[in-house]
Design a binder for these strands. Structure first.
Lengths: 261, 261
DNA sequence: CTGCACGATTGATCCAGATCAATTCGAAGG
DNA sequence: CCTTCGAATTGATCTGGATCAATCGTGCAG
């Protein structure tokens, strides 16, 4: 079984066999969680990072009246919780959408590993930055596009992210979301999600049967969504020989002192 | 003249006089920038952090057809650019809304400082985390609330953030935004912004004349916006004596190795 | 096989907000 | 005082999407 978390991290920094083994050990203890359970609860203090290895979850905020807004999807290989490094109170929840196999990594263990495996930490941080970029993209998508565009945009994001972990092939992927989930994510009613999907289907942009999403012409869907996947591509960091004179790799003890303040 | 950047950082970590002096020196070289100029351009590579000391700017994304979406405001004391630590290509622009006094801190200088002044780095990071939290909040606000709620929510955010740097008093603040700016921020047409503001005024929730925003009853406005400012409050990080046994402050060289990969 | 439950689908109606088109106001400059 | 220009305001009309209310389809437990 491919390890989606390792594969994901590997996109951000080249991991040595030792790095990979270390990550595998960090996330070794896994457990299956039922659909519709919370992995992380709004307002709770979290000292560990939760890694989803299989299945889908979502970050969301919920109102007293029951309405909820999904603010991001957590897919195989994705991590969530605790701002990743600082023990902190999170101000959103993370709930499973399907059955999920998850690993909990104590912040302490992650930090200890960071000490000795800088590439792991780097990959982890870059992944967090990618999450921020996605969040910005959602904001823009909400403000600028109509239902059609928003859904198309979301589907582009999902396919692109799944491809990164090898869970989507050229022309589609598994999409274990109900139309209600989609609606809560893009901020439109279930009924309208249904009609919008029909519209996209009629335009030949997607096919969606059972939980199989097929995108016959990704470029066409991208055009509708005005989707530019650049924000999802791992940042290129220049090699050492490419670094301008004067910028030296730092060597002091930084992260530790920051945490202990 | 109060130094808003220092004041802002001081909220996240107690800064020693030396820390403060160091920040002051880092951000010493400032320049005034006209309104409607870009501090940061979408797609450009950035190796420095830009700190706004006075005036307002905004992060935004722009479409070919000219429409733009503001994805966040940059107010006195706020920093932007380059994911703060990693030299990187940014996928959004930052433009001034008013005249702005800004300082550019080379990533290199910031990192060197981080080495010797952990509290500064910590404050800086926590500030970045707060920005992420705000972004999540915007996503939720867009999906869940109607124009009235979104604008109320935005005003609550603005007042709360300005209070943190001493630029808002109990009952209001300066709001140097046009109705068009507001519209681009909450994803509503200018005309409707106008009508919504009138509505809020009629409800006695706000008064807005020239650029002065008055909020006679903040609690009432919060209620309309379902605004919970917890996400803007600096995270409490426990003191050393409060740390559970086994969690030691780390001391290895982490950040540097990460950057040099 | 039958009933059940949940998700997808459809139809009809209603409304928040967009869009288009003026008009008014206010501050700065001549 | 008069002009000008950007921003605020107002009115009229149009539409994307919400809402309410069924109905249909399908996998599943008894």
């Amino acid at each position: 079984m491919p390890h989606h978390f390792i594969r994901k991290l590997g996109r951000y920094a080249p991991l040595s066999p030792d790095d990979e083994e270390t990550v595998r050990r960090l996330a070794h203890e896994t457990a299956w969680v039922d659909p519709n359970r919370d992995l992380l609860i709004d307002g709770a203090e979290s000292r560990e990072v939760c890694v989803v290895l299989d299945g889908w979850a979502c970050a969301y905020k919920q109102l007293e009246d029951g309405r909820r807004q999904i603010i991001g999807f957590v897919m195989p290989g994705d991590a969530c919780g605790a701002a990743a490094v600082f023990p902190d109170v999170v101000n959103y929840s993370v709930g499973t959408l399907t059955a999920v196999r998850a690993a909990r990594i104590p912040g302490r263990a992650l930090l200890a590993t960071a000490e000795t495996h800088p590439r792991i930490l780097r990959a982890f941080w870059l992944d967090r930055l990618a999450v921020s970029a996605i969040q910005r993209e959602w904001t823009a998508s909400f403000g600028l596009y109509t239902a059609r565009g928003r859904i198309a945009h979301l589907l582009c994001e999902i396919v692109t992210r799944l491809r990164a972990v090898g869970l989507a092939d050229e022309d589609g992927c598994l999409l274990p979301l109900t139309q209600e989930d989609l609606g809560e994510a893009v901020g439109i009613s279930t009924v309208h999600v249904n009609r919008t999907l029909q519209d996209l289907r009629a335009s030949g942009l997607i096919a969606l049967k059972r939980q199989q999403l097929v995108v016959p012409d990704f470029a066409a869907l991208r055009a509708v969504a005005q989707f530019d996947g650049a924000y999802l591509r791992p940042v290129r960091v220049r090699d050492d020989h490419d670094r301008p004179a004067g910028i030296e790799p730092l060597t002091g003890s930084v992260l530790g002192s920051v945490l202990s303040s």
